[in-house]
């Protein structure tokens, strides 16, 4: 793996074998994350964002789920590169404690309601760093201070329900960072929060990223948050990455019709002075995962759809130049303006 790489995911496939059929939740996803980089994974609900990240942590419930293919190369703090798909559970447990940490949308589901936040953070520190309880509690207070919780020493004895949603998310971040991970996976960490609190958490994450120098895999459906946080972006649709590029070209020169559609459908306050009073919606609905459209899964909703071309084989992910990847058979024609959307 390249010197600057931290993670290299290749052709990852995660399927769920349900009574109704096979859900190909993640079906051939590739991306990489460099050291210190923030990669955003964006896509609508059900596109496979959470499943892809859980697979990296090897936390897919089996049954019904199974990683059926691909590799997840990860460079550990010990300098060794491993394929996480193949590691045993004991190694994974170490990696989950020391190298990769995760925060979720709803902190209450990962915080234990019957223990104080101090005890919970300290426990993680004792477990992974082998410190004494006393040292761990001191460090827990430092962590709470780091994530901007006022009166951290006092807060150690709070129970999660005594805190607001924003405070709980700060506690989760403190807990995640207490083991000094090289990768933080943040799955919709601000989706349940009000915008003013979201702004606080995003500011905090950006500050910590600079201070600690970790990489972040930031999962979100909010394009505004992507623009704010990401260095690079992967756009997912129906279990596949359809576009991957640096953040500026993703927004300024999107190549995939789905990315274009998504950007057009977002209400834009910054354009309030000039925009039309109508949003450009993507027609139709997200496809049923048990019954994905043949060929390009986006084709029933795509304004550039060409029968006989788009509904045949699954388009391959192509490099459109400078590492800007796109999974659309017509991207070049569309860029040249040779085809006009219906």
């Amino acid at each position: 793996m390249d010197e600057k790489r931290l993670v290299d995911v290749t052709d990852l496939k995660v399927h769920f074998f349900t009574d109704d059929g096979v859900v190909k939740a993640v079906d051939g996803v590739s991306f990489h994350i460099d050291k210190g980089e923030t990669l955003a994974v964006v896509g609508e609900s059900g596109s496979g964002k959470s499943v892809a990240s859980l697979a990296m942590m090897r936390l897919i419930p089996n049954p019904p789920g199974k990683i059926v293919g691909g590799q997840v190369l990860f460079r550990g703090k010990d300098g060794k590169t491993r394929d996480l798909v193949k590691e045993d559970e004991a190694t994974m447990r170490k990696i989950r404690g020391n190298d990769i940490a995760m925060i979720f949308q709803e902190p209450m589901t990962s915080l234990n309601p019957v223990y104080t936040v101090g005890d919970q953070i300290a426990e993680a520190i004792v477990l992974h760093q082998g410190k004494s309880k006393k040292e761990a509690l001191d460090q827990a207070a430092e962590m709470l201070d780091l994530v901007g919780i006022p009166e951290p020493k006092k807060r150690l004895s709070n129970y999660p329900h005594q805190m607001s949603g924003g405070m709980r998310q700060r506690v989760m971040i403190a807990m995640a960072l207490s083991c000094n991970p090289s990768l933080l996976i943040a799955d919709e960490p601000t989706t349940a929060l009000d915008v003013t609190i979201q702004a606080q958490i995003l500011e905090l994450m950006n500050k910590l990223r600079e201070e600690i120098g970790m990489s972040i895999l930031f999962i979100t459906h909010n394009l505004g948050v992507v623009a704010e946080m990401a260095d690079r972006v992967v756009v997912m649709y129906a279990g596949r990455a359809v576009e991957e590029a640096d953040v500026v070209p993703t927004f300024k020169k999107p190549l995939h019709p789905y990315t274009m559609g998504l950007l057009n459908s977002v209400p834009r306050l910054d354009l309030a002075a000039t925009h039309q009073q109508r949003l450009e919606a993507i027609p139709g609905n997200v496809p049923n995962p048990l019954n994905l459209p043949q060929g390009c899964a986006f084709h029933p909703r795509c304004k550039f759809f060409k029968p006989g071309l788009c509904d045949q084989d699954i388009p391959v992910l192509q490099d459109a130049g400078n590492g800007h990847m796109v999974r659309c058979v017509r991207w070049a024609e569309i860029q040249k303006g040779e085809v006009v959307g219906a």
């Binding site: 405070m167 609190i197 909010n222 500026v248």
Partner: peptide, 25 residues
């Protein structure tokens, strides 16, 4: 003013000064 400034803009080339409200409601 603060509420508007808290909304992330879906344009990575626009960097605005942000008013981050402290604390909770």
């Amino acid at each position: 003013e603060a509420l508007l400034s808290a909304i992330p803009t879906p344009d990575p080339t626009i960097k605005r000064e942000r008013i981050v409200l402290q604390g909770d409601i």
